[in-house]
Design a protein around this nucleic acid. Structure first.
Lengths: 224, 224
DNA sequence: TATACTTAGTCTGTATACAATAAACAACAC
DNA sequence: GTGTTGTTTATTGTATACAGACTAAGTATA
């Protein structure tokens, strides 16, 4: 593995990304260039480059001559992204099942080992493992184009900010089941399990959104 | 429709894009910033922004401290992209079949009208219609995330440069069949037809690649 | 003759400075 | 008092300048 030079803007990008994902910058907030440039001690040029990277990952939006704003997490967009993830992940596992190595499998297993057999799990840590698991599936597939769909992952990561969509006690067995099917190179099963896993989460999400929408209507009713 | 300001870099981006797609800049060619900046009469800053946009569409690659290069059309990448398009388009038509309007259908039909019943068709024009057809499917779906996968389209556009992968006489009925199924809101059929359409093209592409690889080996043999 | 090292030149990455535009606020007219 | 217009201020978009890194050519040495 050779050492790769990373320019300043990449550092800025990483920093801003964590700040957005941790909601130090709130959705809808304007990101003032000069202000942030001073904050991070860089000029506006590498900053601008970083903004663009974030734009491609759907973390910020650019309004010409107005500036960059943190994208609001829109529920409809979230569902749209989930749909895409579903089919892309389906593709990923179909390929992964053919090329997966013992090392890959060991890695996937290691992600969830800390949570197996535990009654109570650290939700934040589990969330990270969950993310990494789904990301790894894309990478293991070996499809170069798939690897580029990182923007999909970011929107979903932000979706998780309100907490996990489903409980670990429910999803952990599903994850392990997918790993098992990959190990046994059972293409049909792994595709089925991945699809089910995704569909279940989407259904719960739709339910939550409906709830939210309802309570919003009530609130508006109170105002009138 | 309100007037939107487009910054210089967007103009530069569009210009460079056509130059790359028309192979004024050859695959693998280095894009010297200062040189192109002078050529287009802009500074290196909007140029840099344009380069980044192109990078996200997989039209150029950036090597840190080396500069930007036009991406070589790699056959493996092309197949990877085709796989992604297949599943994304599957998703697109599943949604499209539910929300498609009469206007959408008329537009899709109008794309291929000039070629219907003709014995000989202008391949270049047909290629453009083909592109627009597949792009439209993504747009009609209404899935915001799907619309963002433009990079997929660009790689494939470049794949077409060597000519159409399959003949219009073969693909035209397939396209019309998909439109018909959309009109009849036959979800199952439209998904099946779209999948078949894509799979056939991929198969032909794989065959062409194998041919090419073979002839390359012969060439190398001659050299030795 | 081939290889390694030095040095000049070119190009990228970053910072600063300037111009153009949008937002905010105050003054004026209705 | 409200709405509109003009002016100021803040912020973005673009150009230029400089420093550091890479490339390549040329010379010296084995």
């Amino acid at each position: 593995m050779q050492i790769q030079y990373q320019d300043l803007s990449f550092e800025v990008y990483k920093r801003l990304k964590t700040m957005i994902l941790s909601e130090e910058f709130k959705p809808g907030e304007k990101l003032k260039q000069e202000h942030i440039a001073k904050l991070l001690g860089v000029s506006r040029m590498p900053l601008h480059k970083a903004f663009q990277m974030l734009e491609d990952e759907m973390l910020v939006e650019n309004l010409p001559r107005r500036g960059f704003y943190v994208t609001k997490i829109d529920h409809n967009l979230m569902l749209d992204v989930f749909e895409c993830r579903e089919v892309l992940e389906g593709l990923a596992v179909r390929r992964a099942v053919k090329v997966i190595t013992k090392e890959d499998l060991d890695y996937l297993k290691s992600l969830f080992k800390p949570f197996c057999g535990k009654k109570k799990v650290d939700n934040k840590k589990y969330m990270e493992a969950d993310q990494e698991f789904h990301n790894s599936l894309l990478l293991i597939s070996g499809n170069e184009a798939l690897k580029r769909f990182e923007n999909v992952r970011n929107v979903l990561f932000r979706a998780y900010r309100g907490g996990l969509i489903r409980e670990p006690v429910e999803t952990l067995p599903e994850h392990l089941g997918i790993i098992d099917a990959l190990e046994n190179q059972d293409e049909k099963l792994v595709v089925q399990l991945t699809l089910e896993h995704s569909t279940k989460t989407q259904k719960v999400l739709v339910g939550k959104i409906e709830e939210e929408t309802k309570s919003k209507f009530v609130f508006i009713g109170d105002e009138a």
